[in-house]
Computed example of a mutant assay.
Amino acid sequence: MKRFASFREFYPYYLAEHGHRTSRRLHFVGSCGVLAFIALVQRDARWLLAAPVCGYGFAWVGHFVFEKNRPATFRHPVYSLMGDWVMFKDILTGRIRW
């Protein structure tokens, strides 16, 4: 397992693991779902349980079906979660192609 000294060092690796456009789209949709479920928490706290299921569900389909790799979540859980949201921002701002 490769070690990373910082998130800055990890992020290029993370992006390389998300080279398939459909996988990136699934990650983006899953992240949107997470935000929607978090918004629903104001009405019922149980929605918070659905947030990670949605986020990881879409992302893992992207990895196993399209990327044909193991999600970085299994090896680098904190950096992977950070990478999800940085990639989400980068897609929103046009830095990464949708």
Rank of each mutant, 00 (worst) to 15 (best):
N69H: 14
P71K: 10
V78N: 03
A59C: 14
I91D: 07
G19W: 11
L81T: 07
L15G: 09
K68Y: 09
M1W: 04
G57Q: 02
S23E: 08
M1R: 07
H18S: 12
F64R: 15
Q42F: 15
Y79E: 04
M82R: 14
G30E: 06
W47A: 09
L49K: 03
C54R: 02
A51P: 09
W47D: 08
Y14L: 12
L92D: 03
V34Y: 09
A16S: 14
F7I: 00
L49P: 01
M1Q: 07
R21E: 15
F28H: 14
W60D: 09
L15P: 09
V61L: 15
A51D: 06
D84I: 07
G83Q: 09
R97M: 03
L40S: 11
Y56H: 06
L35K: 01
A5E: 08
F64D: 06
G30R: 07
Y79K: 03
W85T: 10
G33K: 01
F74H: 13
G83S: 11
D84H: 15
T93I: 11
K2G: 00
R43C: 12
P77C: 04
C54N: 05
G55A: 04
R25F: 10
W60S: 05
A51W: 05
F74M: 14
W98N: 06
F88A: 04
R70G: 07
P52H: 02
R25C: 06
I96F: 11
L26R: 06
L92R: 02
A50E: 00
G30P: 13
G33N: 01
H63V: 08
F4D: 00
L49N: 03
L48P: 04
V29R: 06
W85A: 06
F37I: 00
L15N: 12
G30S: 10
W85D: 04
M87C: 14
S80V: 07
Y79W: 08
R21S: 14
Y56V: 04
L15K: 15
H18G: 11
G62Y: 10
G55P: 10
Y13E: 14
A51H: 06
S23K: 09
R97D: 06
R8V: 05
F10S: 03
R95G: 10
S31Q: 09
Y13V: 11
V65C: 13
S6W: 03
V53A: 11
S23A: 15
G62A: 12
L49F: 12
K2L: 07
A39F: 11
G19I: 06
D84F: 09
P52C: 02
F7W: 02
K2C: 00
Y11L: 10
W60G: 04
G33M: 00
V53P: 01
V86I: 13
V65F: 15
G94T: 12
C54W: 00
R46W: 10
F74C: 13
H20W: 10
R75Q: 14
